[in-house]
Write a protein that binds this DNA or RNA. Structure first.
Length: 887
RNA sequence: GGACGACUAGCUCAGCUUUUUAGAGCAUCUCGUUUACACCGAGAGGGUCAGGGGUUCGAAUCCCUUGUCGUCCACCA
């Protein structure tokens, strides 16, 4: 390997030259796997299950965002010395994947899935998925994800399938899973059912028809779907509606369009809006969820008019065989012809559409499998509850925390309104339902029943049924179980015992209900415990104009393209810094460019230190400060360490990154390094600060920090270095004193004529021999202006000692620049603050002197008043001393 | 219809459990081309924190209200 010479290093960091190699180095080291660390029993664990991307293709920025956040948390925990597991995987994504492959097969071979057959299609899908998973694996690596590939999983692998079967059978035996003929959301294009939350709504307009079934029928009704009226069984009216009261309970025989005979009963129902339309509603139980409810309550028959292909059944009389659209025209034509149509107008309507393909949903009665959300059952911990209540209580009891917490409310609302969950899908790709039929017999178990003539259900399970088991099935359940304290030593425990519950799930808020809620349900049912302690939800990533990225608009930013141009570190920072949880993020290229510059800054700070110090060596112990500037930078570093740690621990990643940037660029690079150039002799401190800064940056920018670590020639990898710790009490809040010291010392020197600060300043700034950095000049000019010092241009020499004198309090200058400048103003401000604090004191004292308040108010209120009083008094004392020192 | 969120500098956004004088990045303008970095440095301009009201010694921050935009949920046939 070629020896690295600092002087030959390129001026700018080149991400693409190092990233792949560095990733390989990490991966080959085995250090992504927590088993390859020598840690003691009490190290603590930290676990994240990577949300499995769909096996349909490529990663988008949403995935990139999740990977950036999770890798940050994982690297942070690992450096803190925890046993850290990040388990990667992919989701088979039943409908999405099958639809994609079907489309490809149709394009290439001109065959539909039915022409191809189940076996053959599944073969094609498997091949496609294998390919796709390889793409995803490589993209996850590109993001720098430090996940344990030896534990990689797939929602259709054997372990997950075992778990799915186990849960299905247990739920069936508990009476939680049942098969029922119910109204389902049917997508005629996907030819499958959809869960309630898989239905989207689109604003549109519809023709609203008002008509009578026949000339002698007494009540007119209104509808946007005249064709479904062929299957009406009732007319519902509000019980208090005087117009129709007289008809309630009566049944009318009607000859309707296409020769269909209807038997219409007039029923009362409080849900009917008297003001809407005619105030009467035609009830079509088979093709409307609301009507279905009414039919159940009034024991009305259910006539299925539309089949799974969107074609009118034989119940449609003369219209049988027509499509829904054709039948609508036919019925409207009939109504016009018979002069039954009273009104036709356009109204706005929210159209139900399939969330995958935007096809309008057809509500249909169908025999499907459901999970009962409201049936009481015994959980593994022996407590009895319904799935719904259980999943709700873990959040309301704060066993699971949401970031941001406002999503706890949406979660609770959603859970409260949850209906039974339709889990069967008429899709071939997925976990086939473990139910066998023979005549009227039904058999449910993990394996096929013995005997002849049994036929397995051809449906598969909703993809969320399996991904809902992601946190524990990936850890070996059901083979692995929790045995409590049986295994004393950590090594003797299985993965489930070691790593579950996981610590965090990080994902977009758009799949809160789909996935997060299902994981909570499933895990509570299987294990009686929570799947994760914290849920961090990021927002949607939009383009720079705030438009949602979509293929059709062509505004999709490809993470790989960004990485190729600016590097992974820059992309990661762009996704994390300046983003707040739960809020959408607008990402433009100039933002990424800015963070590319920051990456370069980190590199160049390192390059400078590398080439300046006499000998590169690790400085692990905090060096002694020789000047005030040293003291200041070491203190600032400690503050940054404490702040960054705290912010990452409390999920304030954006603030953590901003604070680091501030320290790195504005404090270290712009000030301390400039001071170091003048003061000199700072090798130890520079190396010490650099090492800590690199470590702090590592979770954000793993590649550049690892690269610099290599340049420094330090042992091991930065990835496995220990996260720095500081004792909070050691941090000094010294800024204000520095300012005061500086000002007073200049005044003293002047007054006593011991030193002439003017002279010293000049010596440094204006020497014609020495070209002065603008930075230094700025410091001096500012100081000079402050203290009314004159800058002269005659001084020739540049005495080192005086440089020390002037720059020793450089930190204070820094603060001066920040604005604490005008003494009179400062005194006025302090006086005002003291006054307001004193007002607070007298107000609080008055309250505490009031006996009835002290006796009647709650104890904690009284206590907090006392604390407040103490704080205020302390504040007054502090401010007063500051005020006096400014005299 | 219900709920939630946003409204802060030209742009993108922090700050929001009442703690000093409202911040950053980008953009603009001026100066600087110096041996870490032009993917640079020094400086400047730019905000009645959407409007109104309230609580408070003190409000961008807490409460109420109005407006605009957005998201989610439910859904009227």
């Amino acid at each position: 390997m070629k020896e690295i010479n600092e002087n030959e290093l390129p001026k700018a960091y080149e991400p693409t030259a190092h990233e792949d190699r560095i990733y390989k180095k990490w991966e080959d080291s085995g250090k992504f796997n927590p088993d390859n660390y020598d840690l003691d029993e009490n190290s603590g664990t930290f676990t994240i299950m990577m949300p499995p991307p769909n096996a349909t293709g490529v990663l988008h920025l949403g995935h990139a965002s999740t990977l950036a956040y999770e890798d940050l948390m994982i690297r942070f925990a690992r450096m803190q010395g925890k046993r850290t597991l990040w388990l990667p995987g992919t989701d088979h994504a039943s409908i999405a994947t099958q639809a994609k492959v079907e489309k490809l097969v149709l394009e290439k071979e001109g065959k539909t899935r039915h022409q191809l057959g189940r076996e053959e299609l599944l073969k094609r899908i498997d091949a496609f998925v294998e390919d796709s998973r390889n793409t995803i694996r490589s993209q996850v690596r590109k993001m720098g994800s430090s996940c344990d590939w030896s534990r990689e999983r797939y929602t259709l692998d054997k372990g997950l399938s075992d778990s799915v079967l186990e849960i299905f059978v247990r739920m069936y035996n508990d009476g939680l899973i049942y098969r029922g003929d119910r109204i389902v959301n049917w997508c005629p294009r996907c030819k499958s059912t959809l869960a309630d939350d898989e239905v989207n709504y689109k604003e549109g307009s519809a023709k609203f028809y008002t008509f009578k079934y026949s000339k002698d029928f007494p009540i007119a009704i209104s509808t946007t779907r005249p064709e479904t009226k062929l299957a009406d069984v009732a007319v519902a009216v509000h019980p208090s509606d005087e117009r129709y009261m007289q008809y309630i309970g009566k049944t009318f025989s009607v000859d309707f369009a296409g020769g269909t005979k209807l038997s219409i009963k007039v029923i009362p129902d409080y849900h009917v809006d008297k003001e809407f339309g005619t105030g009467a509603l035609g009830v079509t139980p088979a093709h409307s969820a609301v009507d279905y409810q009414m039919a159940q309550e009034h024991a009305l028959p259910i006539i299925k008019l539309i089949n799974e292909d969107g074609i009118i059944t034989e119940n449609g009389g003369a219209f049988a065989g027509q499509t829904v659209a054709q039948a609508r025209k036919s019925v409207v034509a009939y109504l016009k012809e018979q002069e039954l149509l009273i009104e036709e107008k356009d109204i706005p309507q929210a159209l139900s559409i399939c969330y995958r393909c935007d096809t309008p949903i057809e509500p249909l009665p169908s025999l499907q499998w459901f999970v009962n959300m409201s049936k009481e059952v015994e959980f593994p911990d022996g407590k009895k509850s319904t799935l719904k209540e259980r999943a709700l209580s873990v959040v309301t009891d704060k066993k699971i925390n949401f970031v941001p917490d406002r999503f706890e409310k949406s979660y609770a609302d959603w859970m409260n309104n949850l209906h039974d969950w339709c889990i069967s899908r008429q899709i071939w790709f997925g976990h086939q339902i473990p139910a066998w039929y023979r005549g009227d017999e039904v058999y449910v178990d993990k394996t096929a029943p013995e005997g002849d003539g049994w036929v397995q259900d051809t449906d598969t399970l909703d993809t969320w049924f399996s991904s809902g088991q992601w946190t524990f099935a990936t850890l070996g359940w059901p083979d692995n179980v929790k045995q409590g304290a049986v295994a004393e030593k950590y090594e003797q425990r299985n993965d489930l015992e070691r790593f579950h519950p996981t610590d965090v799930v990080e994902t977009g808020y758009d799949i809160l209900f789909f996935w997060v809620a299902r994981m909570i349900l499933m895990t509570e049912y299987a294990l009686g415990e929570i799947p994760f302690k914290n849920v961090y939800l990021h927002g949607l990533i939009r383009d720079e104009k705030g438009v949602k990225m979509s293929k059709s608009l062509g505004n999709v930013i490809d993470p790989l393209g960004v990485i190729a141009k600016y590097g992974t570190d820059a992309l990661r920072m762009s996704l994390i810094i300046g983003a707040t949880p739960g809020n959408d993020l607008k990402l433009g290229e100039n933002k990424v460019e800015g963070y590319r510059n920051l990456t370069n800054k980190i590199y160049n700070i390192s390059r400078f230190i590398l080439s300046t110090v006499k000998k590169v060596k690790r400085v692990t112990k905090k060096p002694k400060a020789k000047t005030v500037a040293d003291e200041w930078i070491l203190n600032e570093l400690d503050k940054t360490i404490a702040l960054t740690t705290e912010r990452i621990e409390t999920y304030q990643f954006s603030l953590a990154g901003e604070g680091l940037r501030e320290f790195t660029w504005n404090t270290l690079a712009d000030w301390y390094i400039e001071i170091a150039k003048i003061e000199g002799d700072k090798d130890e401190i520079l190396l010490y600060v650099l090492e800590k800064v690199l470590i702090l940056w590592h979770p954000f920018t793993p590649f550049v920090t690892e690269y610099v670590w290599e340049l420094l020639g330090y042992e091991d990898m930065i990835m496995t270095q220990a996260w720095p710790r500081v004792i909070k009490e050691d941090i000094k809040e010294v800024e204000f004193d520095f300012v005061m010291n500086l000002i007073s010392s200049i005044r003293t020197m002047r007054g006593e004529n011991k030193l002439d600060p003017v002279l010293k300043l000049n010596a440094l700034v204006i020497s014609p021999d020495v070209k002065v950095l603008s930075k230094q000049e700025a410091i001096i000019k500012k100081l000079a202006r402050l203290e009314n010092l004159e800058i002269t241009h005659e001084q020739q020499e540049r005495p080192k000692a005086s440089a020390m004198q002037v720059f020793a309090p450089a930190s204070t200058v820094y603060l001066l620049l920040d604005g604490i400048i005008d003494i009179d103003k400062e005194r006025a401000r302090l006086a005002k603050e003291i006054e307001s604090a004193q007002k607070l004191i007298s107000a609080t004292q008055a309250r505490l002197a009031n006996e009835s308040f002290v006796k009647s108010a709650p104890v904690d209120i009284v206590e907090s008043a006392k604390t407040q009083l103490g704080d205020a008094q302390e504040k007054v004392a502090k401010l007063t001393s500051q005020f006096e020192s400014l005299a």
